[in-house]
């Protein structure tokens, strides 16, 4: 019996074990991704199933019913969330975009690096601490107000908008900048007429993502806009109801009707936030493609 075996085709026990380990680990990695998607599905489906029965026209058009009465809706919370998120957006979009412009157009590399770290640190401040900060700064002595709450939300949103906008501004091709300068435009004019219009899709995406985040934040509102009337408030110097706080308060209630309201409010909030998330993502893919084509 000759031992003429091709050493390259020998399937040793060791190589089989290596292959099997590979298959097992790849299966585990795949399972992890599936697990994340399954959890997303479970949360979305259970919120939809529990929330849908309570959703009707009244839910959007009526204020909460007085204690011990049934019916009513969360009109005041919806209006409050729209106004407060809207004000926070009006503050944080210009500030965020200007920071990005400063970082990409004016700041020396070291300063820009420092700014980036500062933005990351600000984004990392726990939102509940932001709530305490705004409370001490604006609520003590003045009372709760929608303005205070919006400022709290904008502290959450500014770093998101600034970082994402900076990324898009850096994608704008250098040829466009040089073109603007070559035509004799000042740097400011180049920024306003060439760079920002090219990057506008990315800025819109950043804004949508930040609005989705801000609309769902509870902690910055907890001490700044939590004692509110059961009716629609439009005076920004007063506290306003909001969807996240309605969910937070009602979910801890022993009353089934309150829990029902919490589920329905959660469904409204989640649907809004997820739709914004999907739109934001689609837009960002389109912008990237457009800018790459311009290169």
């Amino acid at each position: 019996m000759s031992a003429e075996v091709n050493p390259l085709t020998v399937v040793t026990r060791r190589s089989r074990r290596r292959k099997r380990a590979g298959i097992v680990m790849e299966a585990l990695a795949t399972a992890a991704a599936i697990l994340a998607i399954v959890v997303l599905a479970i949360v979305v489906i259970s919120v939809a199933r529990k929330g849908l029965p309570a959703i009707n026209a009244d839910f959007f058009t009526k204020n909460p019913a007085p204690v011990f009465q049934t019916g009513g809706g969360i009109k005041n919370a919806i209006v409050g969330t729209l106004i407060m998120t809207g004000m926070a957006t009006l503050i944080s979009v210009p500030v965020g975009v200007l920071i990005a412009i400063f970082n990409t157009e004016f700041a020396p590399p070291r300063v820009a690096e420092g700014m980036r770290i500062a933005l990351n640190v600000l984004a990392g401040v726990p939102t509940i601490v932001i709530g305490i900060f705004i409370f001490g700064l604006l609520v003590v002595g003045h009372g709760q107000s929608a303005i205070a709450a919006s400022l709290g939300l904008s502290i959450v949103m500014v770093p998101l908008i600034a970082r994402a906008t900076e990324e898009v501004l850096l994608l704008v091709p250098v040829t466009l900048r040089e073109g603007g300068m070559a035509l004799g435009a000042t740097r400011a004019r180049t920024v306003i007429t060439v760079i920002l219009p090219t990057a506008v899709g990315g800025i819109v995406t950043a804004t949508i993502v930040a609005v989705a985040r801000g609309a769902g934040e509870t902690a910055p509102l907890l001490f700044t806009s939590s004692i509110f009337a059961n009716s629609v408030v439009t005076d920004v110097h007063q506290a306003m109801a909001s969807i996240p706080l309605t969910i937070f308060v009602d979910s801890e209630s022993p009353s089934v009707a309150d829990q029902q309201t919490a589920w329905a409010a959660a469904l409204v909030l989640m649907a809004g936030v997820l739709i914004m998330g999907v739109i934001g993502r689609a837009l960002s893919l389109r912008t990237r493609r457009q800018i790459e084509r311009a290169r």
């Binding site: 997303l40 259970s46 769902g216 934040e217 979910s251 909030l269």
Partner: peptide
């Protein structure tokens, strides 16, 4: 889809978590 999981507001996750 994995990133959408991050978009779910924490208060909604908390509500789901408790109930």
């Amino acid at each position: 889809l994995v990133e959408l999981l991050a978009a779910i507001p924490s208060v909604v996750l908390g509500l789901w978590g408790i109930l």
